[in-house]
Design a protein around this nucleic acid. Sequence first.
DNA 1: CACGACGAAA
DNA 2: AGGAGTTCGTCGTG
Length: 554
Amino acid sequence: MLEHQDGPLIVQSDMTVLLDYEHPMAEEARRKLILFAELVKRPGNWHTYKMSSLSLWNAASTGMDAASIIDSLKQYARYGLPGVLETNIRILMERYGKLRLEISEGKLLLYGEESLLHELAGHSVIAECLQERINGGTWEVSPEHRGQLKQELIRLGFPVIDLAGYHTGEALSVALRHVTKQGRSFMLRDYQHQAVNLFYKEGTIQGGSGVVVLPCGAGKTIVGIAALARLNSATLILTSNATSVQQWKEELLDKTTLLPSEVGEYTGSSKQVRPVTIATYQILTHRKSKKDSFSHMKLFSERDWGLIIYDEVHLLPAPVFRMTADIQATRRLGLTATLVREDGCEEDVFSLIGPKQFELQWKTVEAEGHIASVKCTEIRVPLDQGISELYHSSEKRSRARLAAENPGKVTVVRQLLERHQGTPTLIIGQYLDQLHALADSLAVPVITGELPQQERQSLYEQFKAGDVPVLAVSKVANFAVDLPDAAVAIQISGSYGSRQEEAQRIGRILRPKGGLNEAWFYTIVTDDTSETEYAARRQMFMLEQGYQYELEKR
DNA sequence: CACGACGAAA
DNA sequence: AGGAGTTCGTCGTG
């Protein structure tokens, strides 16, 4: 492999990699890097990536090996690789595949090297899951502990390849339509087809559980529906909110041969359990009080599901993980646009739902024209003298709010609205006071949680029709699936350092536009305050996806 | 019974 | 660490 003395990467022994973003080869290096490392910091033009056991195992699960990772690093490393790092990568990558779960003669067996198994069995949590030592390299596992075992082993640093297979579940005859109910012709896109194939892994026992990562608007629902049609079995679909439940149902009826009587909604208002059932995470985790049990979890066993689809798997709540640990013999498909969680439960997604099976970079979908190309800009606004003094004399928590609600942001918003006059624009903010004040001074309607659904709908309609060109929205924008698409989004404040929120808000303007297929995202941040740090953290996921934020100062 | 309002939960 | 939002279930009203 060719080595460049002046490459864009500085590779350090603590598993971090610095990427010089100004370097001419930065882009191609980044494309390689994101396959096995995660962006953690971005001070100036140096982006800090970090390899973790999880980022390496996700890479391993999609077929990479230690050699190809080391080659990629060597190819772009400015000063070569520290020897200890090479060894670390090899050790971690070799761990993927050292332990296997398989079924033999009706018994669930854990295979591995004798010394390793001996050591692991010494941990009480592991011992609990193991039944009997068959021989040095084989232990019998109690089937009900299949999930817990995988979860505990990954915590100890040893991922398990689960080849124990799945039960088929109740049969259900379903096919994709070539012409939808609405009369449009319908075909899976290449990447959707590929995603289903990689999830299912025809002819092997390895497929059948894992996560598919596709950007907003790239048709995750279609991937789920195609998986369902491939498996032809009763399916439970879990998703984040009621609107999304309806959308799944509409898509299922529109694009498959399923009959309305075969698709059920399991929500607060209706509790249908049908061959295909769609439920919210909320109802599964709902309890009257803290000491009650999760009575709706019985939905998992109410029917013989052959497939469970976890939509928005990055939002999956902890109690559902616990249930999922118990149903490891059921096929599981996780869908998400951002596999980052803000609660650090990525390991549980990996061990209980499954490893990442397919990921499409946002920029790839953009290049194919399926989503708009977004120009991101961070605009720094100074804090007025008076407020600045107040800021410096305040407690840390009131500071964040002072910076976020900087009245100087209004002028910038006004300028941006002029710049993009005639283009549908969303103004998105975190604080109701701020939104109302801004909307008043700009004479723009506001949508917050207080506004009744009917009035929201009516504003959405007017926005779609172009009668209302600018709409101010609160955090409802994070959840509302039916919020119309826009071409410009102006973020005036957001919740701390949430990478997901940033991605979601940008997702609002991704739907393909005619013509140049362009969209604009502006994030307005108060200069010289902690808000700049939060803004930087928020941008991490988008930067990882290859987006760049231009910086404007006022 | 259909609905809207309200409090609790995560 | 905190603000805002959603959902579920219950209870009251027409």
